[in-house]
Design a protein around this nucleic acid. Structure first.
Lengths: 220, 220
DNA sequence: GGCATAAACGGACTTTACCCCGCTTAGTAT
DNA sequence: ATACTAAGCGGGGTAAAGTCCGTTTATGCC
């Protein structure tokens, strides 16, 4: 034997042609998405447009939801880049609470832009539903919470709950109508709904960050 | 004309046979789910088991996710019944904050029991994803928040965020492994994860309910 | 009871996600 | 260079979701 025993941890890097095809497929998918919408993005159509076999598409992404997850992952990485190295209220340099507020508002914008992708990335039959799409957000929130001076609290769980409070409305609860062009008849405003969610986030984290005198339960 | 103009608001009640078939299909679906799991619950199989045509199944539920949504809706209604008329910490009679805490813990249990149904009820391609599955929860939380003496806050939005904080972990983030029989090797505990979520909820709402001195933004 | 009508039904048909497996090719060790 | 091997590729095959439309049936009205 050479030394395969040590390389078990690293599942061997993707082959060059495979990586090229992945990029090409993602770009093609994005183009189709922009020009024809998510409904037209079928596996067959994508394979044909990209000039590749259907089997290749499945090998790369596993499932239809997998494509959307990959697209979302990509966008999320770019977004996090801005968060980690952008100007202060969002990027580093501001006090943690301000950053948390700014982060929430930025993520709401982000999810609004990517709502179609994000929703299609959900997959109820998958063992780990959200895949690797949200951990980044959770980690960042977790990090900011750590810098905040909360009392005894389970920061990991709290980060998960706040992530859900941020993602949930746009992914699960707010209707598509409301998020697109809402009130056709001049009754309820509608586009203000997002402002409300944004303000709600500010209020939520402000309340949480306020040192409460009550006896907080700690993690075991 | 007779008077169809006034009856526009009420889309005409479901015909008796249709209602019977709906019940029968739900019961059959539940039986199949219990005996063979969600994967075996295909539209064809359900139709055959129930002795009905496939077209009927689709007419009643619209899609596969629709069946799970109907099942979840059903269970949720029963659950809410307990909430509205059960013994105090959960049911009426206790102070709002205590009820809110108890509600969260009860709902975590509920979602844990129905996790397979709830996850399959998600449908990323639907205009209104969660359909009518969560409004009940949101309404109840909203109601309790109203009884709490929070400062100026957008209670509707806050209720939505708390609903997400409650549903999100079990629906989106916690892996299926963790929720089923977790730690095979005796390393990390795992089942304690749910306790942590439960405690986290208590901590979260306690913090929120604590009157914060900061200037809270109000709804427009 | 008989009739009109809208709803419901059934099952063949179409589309689409996903699987499989023989063939090809990029990386690697000699 | 050459040979070896694991990864990648392709596209036909399967099964399940979702659609359509001709037929049947419940329900309200005379």
């Amino acid at each position: 034997m050479t030394e395969p025993l040590l390389s078990i941890g690293a599942p061997r890097a993707e082959r060059a042609d495979a990586a090229r095809n992945r990029q090409h497929l993602l770009a093609t998918a994005r183009a189709m998405l922009a020009s024809q919408g998510a409904a037209a993005l079928t596996m067959d159509a994508l394979a044909e447009q990209a000039g590749l076999g259907k089997g290749t598409v499945f090998r790369r992404f596993g499932s239809r939801a997998g494509i959307f997850q990959a697209l979302l992952d990509d966008d999320e990485r770019a977004f996090q880049q801005q968060v980690l190295s952008g100007p202060p209220p969002l990027g580093p340099g501001a006090p943690p609470l301000d950053r948390l507020i700014a982060y929430g508002q930025a993520r709401i914008d982000f999810l609004l832009r990517d709502r179609e992708i994000a929703r299609h990335a959900l997959d109820g039959s998958q063992p780990i539903p959200a895949g690797s799409s949200t951990p980044l957000s959770r980690l960042h929130i977790r990090s900011l919470l750590g810098q905040l001076d909360l009392g005894p609290a389970d920061l990991d769980v709290l980060a998960m709950q706040l992530t859900a409070a941020l993602d949930g409305p746009l992914l699960l609860y707010l209707s598509a109508d409301l998020l697109n062009g809402p009130a056709p008849a001049g009754d309820r405003p509608g586009p203000a709904a997002l402002d409300r969610v944004s303000r709600g986030w500010q209020d939520l984290v402000t309340r949480i960050a306020t040192p409460s005198p009550g006896p907080g339960p700690g993690p075991p």
